[in-house]
Write a protein that binds this DNA or RNA. Structure first.
Lengths: 202, 202, 202, 202
DNA sequence: TATGAATGAGCCTTCATTCAT
DNA sequence: CATGAATGAAGGCTCATTCAT
């Protein structure tokens, strides 16, 4: 399905895109370093960006589906349990997402740091925007933070996760850090919720 | 101190840099759209990047000094109060930083989103790296999260702040969101700390 | 090994370099007049200077090797015969060098008159400097002219040869002139040597 | 007659022209380093080249007149004495010319090595061409070397003189070297003449 | 499938010079 | 006398892409 030629080009392109970013990377150099000519490349791809997509698509889709799954789980929760449930959700969904990202670190970096000039630019934000309806439930009458705040927090959380994966630390260290961070987020939110409710009663 | 010519160039450059990013923006187009020739530009600046710097320097310096000031305040706290104190610190320092960023929204966006190809690339991360010694105090024996986790959190916090400012929301809305988020962070951390201490006693 | 395209570019470039010198010649004009675009050029060469080198390298190497050969012959002479021998050496080596230069007149002119801005700038002086150890023998106890004088003379001789070749005169006329000039040099030197020796005896 | 402004510009221009050559030197940089603006320059000179000329004219004229004087002396010699006389002429005229050149070393270097792009390009050759009628006498029935050969030799001699002056050696060393070289030239020529005459007799 | 020659637009920068003030 | 803003042309070079073979 994928020829030796493509394989070689992919391998070299990965290095270049990681090092220089999509736009700054030179297709001619990638192709030349792969041992082929420009013409050969265009037998497989129509545009430079198609090469980027080839490197990144599976990982991107995997991330989207995993994040979507988290969203869907949250959505299914009864409104009163959204809050307590969400933390557990994250906690239980995190390991798989984390493992997935760690197994595709290069591609993740491509998506998050090297995609300027491609449709994957602002990949994470776009995903979050797209799935935002899932998270909207946590905003509302029973919960006191604004849509803006929750939006920022959710985004921030996934950016943080990306940074964690790309930090270069060992898997276990990252996992522990993320568990702690999850704790902080959820405890912080629960506490805020409780406090506000108490205030309301007065 | 700044001529009409520069003013016009700055104004047009701001639009182009915001739209295309530093690298992708064409100096020729900026200058032409400003109503001048390339040669005129180089009477004022030595390099394309100098133009970017001219647009951004004051804001960048302002951000650095304000963040540094927060760090220094935290550093001065006695170790036992770092934690409770830090939240207050942030809370009290935030309004000024926030106002500053909101007053220089375009420049802030330039710094955070359009600086690829300039020395301001990764501006926030660099600032945080540089000031990291201030925050290290919160990692240590009395506090249970790893250096990685605290590093990620601090970075994440300022990125979130940047996103908030650039969200386009009204100042008050942003300020409220940030106060809530501060609350969540600090309550979350205090809670985690307390819980861990209780666990230790057993 | 060399395409029609390169051939055409070489031909046009030769004219331009001869007329304007390397630096003053416009690559854009050369390429355009050759019937191609700038991009085409850079498929063959990495830099403007590489084009110059392509035109000139073989000739430059040929000159260096021929001059080196003369130097080596001189070096092998026993000290007492350096002087009488050198003249013969030159006389016998000259025809080949002269023919070589005349066969590559354009390239020679490029090297001697049009190389400003390239590594071949000061080509002849550099060659002479590099081979200077060969000629040093003629300076010393048995010979009365200073290192400066001999250095100047040797340099002058080869510059003169270059001028002769580039004079536009017919081969035979040039050859005859050079033979006469060789005669003058050698007779002049021998005479000076003899006279000084006689003076010493007194 | 020459203002402080011009003086300063001249001084800086001299350095730049010596270092970079006329063409490669940047007028803007010269003027700026002199502490003035481009506009100021054009109050004194119409073109960049005029500045070069201002630096060089007196020296160039001095050289021309001195060389012309040598030529005129040679011209006045009766035909039979051209040969023996010429050597003396050179020998007697040399010191003054040499001193003149040494006193104007910078200007001489400008003329001989840095004048590309000005009317002084090929200054020496042009002078020699222009004065060539003076030297033609030494070619002819009584003298056996061709016009080409004598032309080359005369040119070569003055080039050598220029190199000597610019060698950086001490005045006395240069003078001695030139005396020796004169000797070689004249002895060589006399000898050739004598030998040829003897051959003719046979 | 792969070549490799060629395109054409674009890049940032430098220059000598002019001219209104 | 000097300023300094502006010109306008030119410079070498890189790029993604096309296409006949």
């Amino acid at each position: 399905m994928i020829t030796k030629t493509q394989e070689k080009i992919h391998q070299v392109a990965m290095q270049h895109f990681l090092r220089d970013g999509f736009r700054q990377a030179s297709l001619r150099k990638i192709v030349a370093e792969s041992g082929f000519t420009s013409g050969a490349f265009y037998g497989y791809y129509k545009k430079k960006e198609d090469l980027f997509e080839a490197l990144v698509k599976d990982t991107a889709d995997g991330i989207v589906s995993r994040i979507t799954k988290i969203g869907e789980s949250v959505e299914k929760l009864p409104r009163e349990q959204v809050f307590s449930g969400m933390s557990e959700m994250f906690e239980s969904a995190l390991p798989e997402l984390l493992d997935f990202l760690l197994e595709h670190q290069d591609e993740t970096r491509l998506l998050l740091k090297c995609s300027d000039g491609t449709t994957y630019n602002n990949f994470l934000s776009d995903v979050m925007d797209h799935e935002m309806n899932y998270w909207e439930k946590i905003t509302g009458e029973n919960f006191p933070i604004s849509a803006l705040a929750s939006n920022l927090l959710i985004n921030s959380y996934f950016n943080l996760l990306g940074d964690a994966v790309l930090s270069g630390a060992a898997r276990e260290e990252i996992a522990k850090a993320m568990r702690d961070i999850n704790d902080i987020y959820s405890k912080g939110m629960m506490n805020l919720l409780k406090e506000r409710k108490e205030n309301e009663k007065l």
